[in-house]
Design a protein around this nucleic acid. Structure first.
Length: 275
DNA sequence: GCGGGTGTTCACGC
DNA sequence: CGCGTGAACACCCG
């Protein structure tokens, strides 16, 4: 799924496309992604609501609506918003259509059907388990070197790759950026958190926000499925240094990049650069 | 047909 | 309790 930079890109696009518009109709083709009491409640509560603003929380999209309602969307692996030019452009795996008062339609598709869409009074959004347990935003002022040091100390036996992927500690980093961050920081993905030296903590503190911001500048990474609301791919895929580069030469030392499994996910690293 | 996949959660075993 | 693994969710693609 989209990680922090991709979700951030989507939120910016949605702000451009649908902010201030009113939802005047809803079509639901697949109920299960809607995590409301029932679909009828979901649809009837959304009718005539205006989009006030769209922002990112972790890897979730938070759409603030009028009357203090909030729609929260977790794209998971393959969820995606797009604006079909016409009725016949609606894709096979589209589960939801929002008819907007400017005559356009916002469509939501999700091939693997893992996505979750919640609708709540805004005051209740923080009670959703995903939001409640969400860790520190890596692009916020709360993310400091001290924070990182303390959290690493709290999970001494956890490996550093799992640490970076753990949304309850830091939110927004996914499988692609975890590999990239560890390569830039010259840390082997299987190291225990307790073994991370001060200098390496400083590197992580520097590169976590650096890489995420660079990717946002490039509108994210498209590895296979991800697309922006406008259908465009992210450009950061061209700038990946290790992810997906198994058997290819390291961009720094020409050693062969290896693929291993950590935290049940494929992990790419340079055996020579990352100690 | 099989395995793998930008995510998250849960069950299980140690 | 904590950590790691594997499965589950559901579908496409090589």
């Amino acid at each position: 799924m989209p990680e922090l930079p991709e979700v951030e890109t989507i939120c910016r696009s949605l702000n451009k496309e649908i902010k201030t518009l009113k939802i005047c109709g809803i079509n639901v083709f697949y109920d299960k992604i809607i995590k409301a009491h029932n679909v009828k409640d979901f649809s009837s509560s959304l009718i005539n609501k205006k989009v006030v603003s769209v922002k990112r929380i972790g890897k979730a999209i938070n759409i603030l609506l009028s009357d203090d309602y909030t729609m929260l969307i977790q794209l998971k692996m393959t969820g995606r918003f797009y604006m079909p030019a016409a009725e016949e452009n609606i894709t096979k795996h589209t589960h939801l259509l929002f008819k907007l008062n400017d005559g356009r339609t916002l469509a939501f598709e999700d091939i693997r059907k893992f996505a979750c869409i919640y609708l709540e009074k805004s005051s209740k959004i923080n009670n959703l388990p995903y939001i409640q347990k969400l860790g520190c935003e890596p692009l916020s002022n709360d993310f400091t070197e001290t924070f990182l040091m303390q959290k690493l100390a709290k999970s001494p036996k956890k490996n550093i790759k799992s640490f970076l992927l753990d949304q309850h500690i830091i939110c927004g980093i996914g499988n692609i950026y975890a590999s990239e961050i560890l390569f830039y920081s010259k840390i082997n993905p299987d190291r225990n958190c307790s073994s991370i030296k001060k200098k390496e903590i400083r590197a992580l503190y520097k590169y976590i926000p650096f890489i995420l911001k660079e990717s946002i500048k490039n509108k994210g990474t498209t590895f296979s499925d991800y697309r922006d609301v406008d259908g465009n791919k992210g450009n950061f895929a061209n700038k990946l240094t290790v992810y997906g580069r198994k058997d290819k030469p390291c961009t720094k030392c020409k050693s062969t990049i290896i693929k291993t499994v950590t935290a049940g996910r494929s992990t790419f690293s340079c055996p020579k650069c990352q100690k």
